[in-house]
Design a protein around this nucleic acid. Structure first.
Lengths: 202, 202
DNA sequence: GGCGTATATGAACAACGTTCATTTATAATC
DNA sequence: GATTATAAATGAACGTTGTTCATATACGCC
């Protein structure tokens, strides 16, 4: 007893996200706005607000998809048990992903939560997934009982790489170095491995 | 033969920056806008555009001042020649500065340049100053001819810390760890020193 | 007093996110 | 088939942005 929907809620969400992605591809993420997304998907502004709470939520979902795609790209990385091999292989996948998804990648680092607001739970889960990957690869460098040390090492390595990603995404990496992001990232991993292996022997 | 200025160009700039700082302090950096700044300094919107190219430039100057203040806070750090002491001491100043200038600090990491636009030269110089400080402190760990290695180590350490700062500024550090920023940062320095000292012995 | 000019203004514009009263289209009912 | 209830979709309108620029202002100089 009501007007039938042309598309289901889920379809609309997917259409909106696809439209947003198209806008980003064509006009850059700075030109991503509600009206552009609505026009692209052939709906009106109001429809976007029937689907999402607002633009911020739409962008959050976009970033979620990007994070998922990243994890998918990383998950297939082989784990040989030799950290120095595995980490660099993982890193190459990371870098390939960045190259292939430059604008989405940049956008991910742009979400800045209002003061004293917590990110949603799913965000933390997705980050934890990447942590888990690193954990597997660093595992061989730690004795069975050293779970805390392993966790700490994973955190620090992740944060260090995060430093590279944010500089790269904001276009300021070259302030720090003339080297390409690939080289710096691999150096970073080497520096970390040096510290960790020394720990084992020290 | 013209209307006399109430304030010189430089005075106006200073007034505008002070007004902006007041807005940030009172209403948060998200509520920083041209009209608010103009109202605070007792001038009209148009005047802001007589002084600055636009809001972005005003914010850029604010960030420049913040960077200067940071460097001033760091420059007084003692250099004893023992890296493990000096770096932690420097870090404490860093952390004190962040605590004392939380909002300005957060704002610094928000400037995201349009694609393919280079940051101004003075920005790079100011960053180089901090690099120089780190270079002095790490110097003892390197042999006289190892300038390239020293420079590389400085870059990597700086980037790693940058990873902490961006996570902290965006309110997402706790996703990575429940520990406070202080602890993580000091751990980071220790991890780096471990790798570097191992290098010397290895 | 009148003139010229640097200084300062603020109305007006375009673009934005967002709201919500209204319209539209359909399934159910008669 | 006409009526009706209701979910779906709309888009005009609002408030807030950054920015522009024709205009108003106030002063030194003649």
């Amino acid at each position: 007893m009501a007007r039938t929907a042309k598309h289901s809620k889920q379809e609309l969400r997917d259409m909106a996200l696809a439209a947003a992605r198209a806008v980003i591809a064509d006009e850059g993420w700075r030109n991503l706005n509600v009206r552009a997304v609505a026009a692209r998907m052939g709906y009106s502004v109001g429809t976007i607000y029937n689907i999402f709470e607002g633009l911020e939520e739409l962008i959050a979902w976009l970033n979620a998809e990007t994070l998922d795609a990243l994890h998918e790209a990383l998950a297939a990385a082989p784990v040989t048990g030799r950290p120095e091999v595995d980490l660099h292989a993982l890193l190459d996948r990371y870098l390939d992903f960045i190259t292939a998804n430059r604008r989405e990648w940049t956008m991910m680092f742009d979400e800045r939560l209002p003061e004293a607001e917590a990110p949603p739970a799913w965000y933390m889960e997705k980050v934890a997934q990447v942590f888990a990957l690193l954990g597997c690869m660093l595992q061989p460098l730690f004795a069975p009982g050293e779970d805390a040390e392993l966790a700490r090492a994973v955190r620090l390595l992740w944060i260090s790489l995060h430093g590279i990603w944010t500089l790269d995404a904001s276009g300021k990496l070259f302030i720090v170095s003339q080297d390409p992001v690939d080289k710096i990232a691999h150096e970073m991993v080497d520096a970390y491995l040096a510290g960790l292996t020394a720990r084992g022997r020290g």
